[in-house]
Computed example of a mutant assay.
Amino acid sequence: MARRLAILDWANRCGAVVVEDDYDGEFRYDGQPLESLQGLDGGSRVIYVGTFSRTVFAALRIGYLIVPKALVGVFEAAKWLADRHTAGLEQRALAEFIDSGSYELHLRRVRRSLAMRRDALLHAMDTAWGNTLRTTGAGAGAHVVLWLPAGCDERRAIDTAASHDVGVYPVSGYFLRHARPGLLLGYAQMTLPDIREGIRRLAASLSSI
């Protein structure tokens, strides 16, 4: 929470606008959900970006913005210029899905399913590495970051994992500078046996570099 408040303080001091991309904020497993920057801000310095493609299904290409009141006209004009054919039928169906209470029931089912996958992943990682390698990001979302030892060649780790039929992604691309080597592990579409086998293979691949 302190970091969120610090970001808002910086935005107010600099006259900046913060874009908050909360694409998987509905999936939180530990503790109480953190209040969004947009909610803390009160509506003057944060553009909140959300999507239903993540929570319902990927082919439902419906997202939304909550923008500061002063910017509503700007975004309406940009939307009119960029896209005049918003899918009305899909939006009506989604609105009915939400109003009926079915969306909330769906979210609960998805959270339970993802939590089981997350727990299986963490258990497999603990079995493979114990306290040797550190992980972060397990409290929410559908990814976990596995931090590699300092000086480890991230690209080589990814290529070696691929040679064991395991797909992982680099973390360094999310840093502007002073990147730390790490691997992004997704689990949303995987079965529990595949998660366990994937970590076994990943551990074998990392032990060889």
Rank of each mutant, 00 (worst) to 15 (best):
I47F: 04
A59Q: 11
A82Y: 01
A120R: 00
G50Q: 08
G31E: 01
P181L: 05
A162Y: 00
T86D: 07
I66G: 01
Y187S: 10
I62A: 03
L105H: 11
E154M: 08
T136I: 00
T160G: 00
A115L: 12
A179I: 06
R61S: 08
D41G: 06
Y48W: 11
L202S: 02
A58Y: 13
R155P: 00
V67T: 05
D119Q: 08
D165W: 00
I209N: 02
V166M: 03
A150F: 14
A70K: 05
G198L: 12
Q91E: 15
S102Q: 15
S36G: 11
I47Q: 04
A82M: 07
R117A: 10
D126G: 12
R84K: 11
Y174A: 05
G182R: 12
R134E: 09
R45D: 02
L107G: 09
F175K: 03
L37S: 08
I47Y: 04
G88A: 09
I195R: 01
E26C: 10
H178C: 13
Y169H: 11
L94P: 06
S163P: 00
A16C: 08
A6G: 12
D30P: 00
T191G: 08
Y187H: 14
R4T: 07
D99Y: 04
V145T: 15
S163V: 01
V144C: 08
Q38F: 08
V17T: 15
G182I: 14
F57Y: 11
R118C: 09
L94S: 04
V74S: 07
A95F: 13
H106A: 14
G137V: 11
G173T: 09
A179S: 12
P181N: 06
T51K: 05
T136Y: 11
P149Q: 05
V49Y: 12
F97M: 07
L206C: 06
R4E: 11
M190H: 10
I66C: 04
V46S: 04
S44L: 09
A87P: 03
H143A: 06
I199M: 09
Q32M: 10
Q38D: 06
E104D: 15
L8P: 02
W10P: 12
Q38A: 13
V46K: 03
D159V: 00
A82I: 08
S208W: 00
R201H: 07
T136G: 09
L183I: 13
L89F: 14
S172L: 07
S205A: 15
P170K: 06
F27M: 08
R108G: 05
R112T: 09
E76S: 04
G130F: 07
R3C: 07
W129T: 05
G130V: 11
T191W: 10
K69V: 13
L122I: 14
V49D: 01
A179Y: 14
M1S: 10
G141S: 12
V145C: 13
G42E: 01
G137H: 10
D30F: 15
A124Q: 04
A77S: 05
N12D: 15
S100W: 13
G25T: 11
A124H: 03
P193I: 12
T136Q: 07
I66T: 03
V46G: 04
